[in-house]
Design a protein around this nucleic acid. Structure first.
Lengths: 167, 167
DNA sequence: TATTGTTATACTCTATAACTATA
DNA sequence: TATAGTTATAGAGTATAACAATA
């Protein structure tokens, strides 16, 4: 269950490793918790994301669903086939385009999506509700900084440099 | 590439959803970055973890490797077979137990593990080096709080309650 | 000719169950 | 009889390439 690199081993006093270690630890625990909860609903990560995207974006072609999910069109076919038996999604021929299929949430699918949203809000409350204002500010600022860093062109250069250093 | 639930859509003013959203965003970006970097080294997440565990724990039986990785013994066989062609790991009959195989890093494997450690330290510096002391304190406190929450028995009860509420 | 979704094929990670060899 | 690792089988997520139907 524990896929992390340092499962409680000896502490390494590397610069910045502590904060990064926290990030890994939280990531692993969150992933485990979410997958477990989704399994109780008969869902997987990928399939739940399909429901979320459809819930947020409304009915759409498989093509657009693939783009929204960031996966191949073929993969979408598989995910929808996997969701079909549970009756959470509907697929009808697109009215304006004979090639396309229009995918939408069924009534059950809508309820499931709302349930997932509720789960998420409850988790958010459970994790953050009693965090002191001052701590939360530092958390948010740091997380935003990380997002910015990971999206910045400088990060791409850093990685390219690391790759070339060894090849 | 964007597997997150709310890909920049309209902001939802739910209690605690903002902080949780930050966590998801960072998680997705980190996972993408790491997988991409590992691919450049000819590795995957699971295989890199094998190297890390062997680097940290030294030579061990496949059984123990499976336990350390938190996967089935069968899965370890597959991961080692996948690592074999690159010559990063060695497998020799266990000297004291004719049933077992002793797995260890080759010289190349050791170098690769050190390289991964260096990558990690560099990433940690890149992400956290210039975070102000005060912000970092809030970040660390919040992350530790999340870990504690996710590991607490209260969390298990919360999840059980959520499950029963709908079944 | 370009686009939509499919069939075909393949790779990775994961699991359980049955079996072999060894303790 | 119990343990270590394998073969056999299966499911989930992912991809590309080739192809049919439709624009």
């Amino acid at each position: 269950m524990n896929h992390i690199h340092d499962p409680g081993g000896p502490p390494d006093p590397q610069v910045g490793a502590e904060p990064l270690g926290r990030l890994f630890a939280v990531t692993v625990l969150m992933a485990d918790a979410m997958e477990h909860d989704l399994a109780e609903r008969g869902l997987t990560r990928a399939r739940a994301t399909v429901l979320s995207v459809l819930h947020a974006g409304g009915p759409m072609k498989q093509r657009d669903l693939a783009a929204a999910l960031g996966v191949s069109p073929r993969n979408v076919t598989g995910l929808l086939e996997a969701l079909a038996p549970s009756g959470l999604v509907d697929r009808v021929p697109h009215p304006d385009d004979g090639r396309a299929t229009l995918v939408s949430l069924s009534e059950r699918g809508r309820r499931m999506a709302q349930r997932l949203d509720a789960d998420r809000r409850e988790l958010a409350r459970f994790l953050f509700d009693d965090v002191p204002e001052a701590e939360l500010a530092g958390y948010l600022a740091t997380m935003d900084r990380i997002v910015a860093r990971l999206q910045s062109p400088v990060f791409g250069e850093l990685r390219r440099a690391a790759g070339e250093r060894w090849d």
